[in-house]
Amino acid sequence: MRMANLAGRAHLVAGDRSVDVARASGGRFPADPMAVLDRWAEVVAWSRDVDVAAGAPWDPAELGAPSPRPRQVFAVASNYRDRPLVLPTPADLPVTFTKFPACVVGPYADVPLPTDTVDWEVELVVVIGRAAHRVPAAAAWDVVAGVTAGQDFSERTLQLGGPAKQFSLGKSFPAFGPTGPVLVTPDELADRDDLGLSCRVNGETVQDARTRQLIFPVAELVARLSGVCALLPGDLIFTGTPGGMGMTMTPPRYLRVGDEVVSHIEGIGGLRNRCTAPDGVTGKLS
């Protein structure tokens, strides 16, 4: 099953056709994608009898974030075997921070650049489908609604430049968390643990890897995070990014106004984000 947020309403999509969940269910299910995620198991069961191919055409310009108002956003650092480690990876728990939920936007949102040291990080994003606490790894995929693509835009001066690292703040400026284009249930994927992901900046490929290179794969992340925190429907887990970030280049390369960042994950689809001038006053970076 593939679910899209179209103009704030949950839709099942297949190719160029879509079905509005609330209307097709006769009001049994709500229109709000967040409320749909709260009843995810019911919606998935109902969807098996829906002929999405007979639905109406849909407009990609209406796409919003599949989980537009997550209560919790977890993000993982240094989780790919092919990249230089920003922080050492412990054996027991992944290096975890948060992107504050206000930064979550849809797949084609413009991204205002607050400084000249903003970097890119393509990531597989896990969306939780039911409340879960202390889930063993063997059962972890059972609490996952699906996966989507994400960009963990990062302001490196604030994140890494001071005496104390500010991972969460440096990654939470407006529009720093685009996700989409759709939420894909794991059964739709040929191998849910081995997906190709890539990032291009102005047409140049800067990141290209596969999720089988994750140090903590999806099931381990869900298990270990839920071992500490209660996970809630609609929560997001940004699973980490592979090598190819701008800050690791010689000399470092960062995004400029007018740049276009295209992120893609096999079996899910892509994001396209244009970098723009700041759209408001930002705090002083130290």
Rank of each mutant, 00 (worst) to 15 (best):
P186I: 06
V118E: 00
V52T: 12
F29L: 10
P30E: 15
A10Q: 10
L124P: 00
T148W: 00
R17H: 06
Q166N: 09
A35R: 12
F153V: 05
A53S: 14
G55R: 03
E42K: 07
V222T: 04
P163E: 09
S67P: 07
F216K: 05
I215K: 03
P136A: 11
L63R: 00
G258H: 06
G267R: 07
V184P: 00
F153R: 01
R28L: 14
A24V: 09
W46T: 06
A75Q: 03
Y80W: 04
P101L: 06
G246Q: 07
V122N: 02
V105M: 06
N202I: 06
R256I: 07
A102N: 10
V144C: 03
V228R: 11
F74Q: 08
D208E: 08
D259Q: 04
Q166P: 00
T205N: 01
R256W: 10
P186W: 11
T148I: 12
G227H: 11
H264A: 15
S154W: 01
L231P: 00
P70I: 02
E155I: 01
Q151L: 14
D259G: 11
W120I: 01
L160Q: 12
G244C: 02
A75L: 10
L255I: 05
A77D: 03
R272C: 11
S18K: 13
L225F: 08
R71T: 10
G26F: 05
R134Q: 11
A77I: 08
L221K: 09
T241S: 13
G240P: 00
G161C: 02
E42W: 10
V21H: 14
M245E: 15
P90K: 07
R256T: 13
G240S: 05
K171P: 01
T211F: 00
A139P: 03
M245S: 14
M245G: 11
D235N: 13
A138Y: 04
V122K: 01
G196P: 02
A77P: 04
V76A: 04
L169H: 01
E260G: 10
R192S: 14
R83M: 08
E155D: 09
V262C: 11
V257F: 09
R83I: 00
Q159K: 06
T211W: 01
G283T: 02
L285D: 06
G269T: 06
P94H: 15
C229I: 12
V95S: 06
V76N: 02
D119F: 02
A77G: 12
T89L: 13
T282E: 00
G106N: 13
A175G: 05
A277M: 03
V111W: 03
S78Q: 09
A65T: 12
G203K: 07
P57D: 09
Y80M: 05
D152P: 01
V95E: 08
R134H: 10
R69A: 15
L87K: 10
R23W: 13
M249A: 15
P101R: 09
T117Y: 01
P114S: 03
V257G: 05
